[in-house]
Amino acid sequence: MTMLNFFCAAVLASCPLLFGTLGESLTEKSGNLNLGVEGMMFMGAVAGLGGSYYYEKSAENPVAIISVLIAIGCAFLCAALGALIYSVITITFRANQNVTGLALTIFGIGFGNFVGEAMSNAAGGYVVVSDLTKTAFNTPLFPALSTIPIVGKLFFSYNFMVYLSLVCAIVLAVFLKYTRVGLNLRSVGENPATADAAGINVERYKYLATVIGGGITGLGGLYIVMNSANGVGGVWVHNCISGYGWLSVALVIFAMWNPSRAVFCAFIVGALSVMRLYISLGIPDQIYNIFPYIATVIVLIFVSLRKKRENQPPASLGLAYFREER
């Protein structure tokens, strides 16, 4: 039974990481290394919470599903807006990607905490969504199926966000591997000059991949703020994202830019993050917390040593593309 609970907790813990990893994978496939994931998660989190909160305040009889949809829409759009700023500056204005990504992180963290605090002040203490929305984010999507012994708990006891993240992963994996547009996108990330010569609109692909990818990472932020697995849910907590974005950037490497592998890698890291609550290993918590990062470094070294072609980062990752300078 402990193992079962552990598995479920691991899945819940891995969900925001999976959103972050998927979004950033899509972005990096276009050759854009957006280091602003942490910032975009903050933006998504505060916008999603705010959207839901103000909807509930303004509607007479708030409906859970509308509140949830508004939260998802706001989170996605706000994080996508952050990614759009990044895109304009790096793609159109050709600024350095690392620096712009860090600027986005600084901005996003500031934005999240600033808006979060301003909303809390306006609300006179805390911004809390009602139990209605909280329940929607924290109860099983398939209540009937989840009562089946073991199997029900194992596969059907999660909230809808978990399934949404899995659907995202599958869609993204199929998109990148089996569709024409996905192939074009990958070629933009590998060699934009060649893609350009083949008639692919490099700028448009980079814009779309980065903005949509950013929006997906925002859903990870929304999950963190709405989920109550780590304590209170549906309330703004100062600095609530606290490193999930950076961990997602690490996970992209750990998963070697592969969305289906991202599911397993996010699960492993999620499991690591909750394991100490279930199994005692005798390792100090703080050392234990750096395992994902050490694992990422090892993967990074391993990837560069083996030079296996399909596991490499997109070849043009982090480089700006200027048509007239090719």
């Binding site: 910032g39 600084i106 500031g110």
Partner: peptide, 12 residues
């Protein structure tokens, strides 16, 4: 946190 927002905008 306004400093983060303002710094970010200026950096952008």
């Amino acid at each position: 946190s306004a400093s983060g927002v303002l710094t970010g905008i200026i950096l952008f």
